[in-house]
């Protein structure tokens, strides 16, 4: 892991889904301790943005610069559905070199303590989301990319997510959060992805 402060920069980013341009000229810069909330309706391109920033897809135009380890939370847990939750999380803890005690405290924090023997496929939507959050929390990465972290969670868990993001940023971390629900994180700035959608005239030009 780098000793330097983490940062996340997008410069003039444009992404397409299929043939359609979703957004363009999107730039932002996040330094240590900063969080940004990406808002937008379903299908506006929030997930596409997160995946491009994560480096999983190549943007249509523009560049992303990442400094610091990344952790990604999206609608897929990354946990083996056949394994008991404890062992599925232990696999990632082993990859991320997280000790058993640290993993245990992450699970307790997210209220998963009594679910560790349950196979992942039997967990409810909210429980799966919390399990994925435990994986992200345990990873200890400086840059968090959270795609719809609140979906499927009850009110108590939603405020827990806000608290986790607050702590993460308080410790010098970065968070980029795509969600259509509000989060209670003081100092968090936000932008709507629709503001970067191409005008109709431009879209015609594209075609």
């Amino acid at each position: 892991m780098q000793a330097s402060a983490p940062s996340l920069t997008a410069d003039n980013l444009a992404c397409r889904r299929g043939e359609r341009l979703l957004f363009r000229r999107l730039s932002f810069r996040l330094g240590a301790g900063e969080a940004r909330h990406v808002m937008g309706a379903n299908g506006a391109g929030k997930t596409t943005l997160i995946r491009a920033v994560a480096g999983l897809t190549t943007p249509y135009a523009g560049t992303v610069t990442r400094d610091g380890a990344l952790a990604l939370l999206d609608e897929r847990t990354g946990l083996d559905p056949d394994l008991p939750l404890g062992r599925a999380l232990a696999f990632w803890a082993g990859i991320d070199r997280v000790g058993g005690l640290a993993l245990e405290s992450c699970c307790d924090r997210l209220g998963l303590g009594n679910l560790l023997d349950v196979p992942v496929r039997y967990l409810s939507t909210g429980q799966k989301k919390r399990a994925a959050l435990a994986r992200v929390l345990g990873q200890g990465a400086k840059v968090w990319l959270l795609d719809e972290p609140l979906s499927g969670l009850d009110t108590a868990s939603q405020s827990l997510v806000s608290a986790l993001v607050r702590e993460h940023c308080g410790g010098g971390g970065i968070a980029l959060i795509a969600s259509h629900q509000p989060l209670d994180v003081p100092g968090m700035t936000s932008f709507a992805i629709e503001d970067f959608a191409p005008a109709e005239a431009e879209e015609k030009e594209q075609a």
């Binding site: 480096g55 990344l70 952790a71 990604l72 897929r76 847990t77 990354g78 946990l79 083996d80 990859i95």
Partner: peptide
Amino acid sequence: IELGFFDQLRLR
């Protein structure tokens, strides 16, 4: 792929 397993490894 459905599980996002390869994506998580890629991030690491």
